[in-house]
């Protein structure tokens, strides 16, 4: 049986989430592996969300926010960029495949882009196989 990864998507309300919506309403096809959670801004994402998601069984985490400069709160994603970049480095040094975590800027009008990214990321995580390092074993 093919491995179907579980991916947590965290999308900002103003851009990526709306973009995902657009992808839906324009009936674009993309893999269903990403479960999207909406947050108000990508800077609301506590790095522990990502660690915790991986512990609770996510095989990958995809974060989406507005393009730098387009943040609804002006600078939220600029903070988030630094913070999430650090998160990525930490995962990497801990020995977790960096390919399991990705940050993308997707605007409200980029339904296509959203579908593309999900497609790409899902394939990538699929190729990495199940995430067992951080996952809490019963």
């Amino acid at each position: 049986m093919d491995f179907e990864p579980k991916i947590l998507g965290i999308a900002c309300n103003w851009c990526t989430y709306t973009g995902a919506d657009l992808a839906g309403t324009t009936r674009l096809q993309y893999p269903q592996n990403v479960r999207v959670v909406r947050v108000m801004c990508s800077s609301r994402i506590n790095p522990s969300f990502i660690f915790r998601a991986l512990q609770l069984g996510a095989d990958g985490v995809l974060v989406g926010g507005c393009h730098p400069g387009d943040c609804h709160y002006n600078t939220g994603n600029l903070y988030a960029r630094r913070r999430l970049a650090t998160t990525k480095k930490i995962l990497e040094f801990a020995g977790i495949e960096p390919g399991r975590f990705r940050v993308e800027w997707i605007s409200a009008s980029e339904g296509n882009r959203f579908a593309e990214v999900v497609e790409e990321f899902t394939t990538q995580v699929k190729n990495l196989g199940p995430q067992t390092k951080l996952k809490i074993q019963e």
């Binding site: 730098p68 600078t75 600029l78 903070y79 960029r81 630094r82 999430l84 990525k88 990705r102 800027w105």
Partner: peptide
């Protein structure tokens, strides 16, 4: 932050 921070870091 700096506006000119690069996306490369991600």
């Amino acid at each position: 932050f700096r506006v000119e921070d690069s996306d490369k870091i991600l």
